[in-house]
Amino acid sequence: MAATATTVTGAREQILNRIRDALGRDTDEIDIAALRARIARHPRHIEPAFDESPTQRLCAKLEAAAASVARVDTLAEVGAAVENYLQGNDLGRQLVCSGDALLQQIEWPPSLDLQRRVPLGADSVGITSALCAIAETGTLMLISGQQKPTSLNFLPDHHIVVLPLDQLVMRMEDAWDRLREEGAGMPRSVNFISGPSKTADVEQTVEYGAHGPRCLHVILVG
């Protein structure tokens, strides 16, 4: 591996020097402080306007992307909504659940067999919460963490997401601010999910359930 290490170091300087030559300037001619200030300021750009209410827009966009949406008033009703979904889709009673704080608060009906673990290929239903949702595009934002395996968002055939409506933001830029407020830096994975998995690789025609969940079900609370 020593040989590779040398090549790698050499390539780094070569590439950076070629870039500097191409730009016609030296390293010391760059105002690195100004660039870092731009990063720290992270200016927002053009944010498309929309008229609908954020909740309306979120639901409409999710449904247009073939996700299903259920609404309940309080967290106490989530358990019944999940039961409903499982029954309606003949999915049995077992589901893999992320261990995040919101789902821990819920009192689950005894009929459900909730397992808090990393999912396996054979698990058919997973349930998670989301950090927030974005009204502009009808998108859920999920982050990884101790009790939040990323694979839970992709392996099971059915992905149920519980979202309190006070976590709905307007745009992706608001979602970044929300994440920055958490103060823990960039999580290992940030997944923006805007519908079930799909492909149009066979004759440009959409089929659902390519690799990830065939069905995405969102339970809005509030």
Binding site: Q147, V190, I193, S197
Partner: peptide
């Protein structure tokens, strides 16, 4: 459907 940002390897606290 998916837009994913990944940053570094799994953390000690990641599942």
């Amino acid at each position: 459907a998916y837009t994913t940002f990944t940053t570094g390897p799994r953390r000690q606290t990641d599942a």
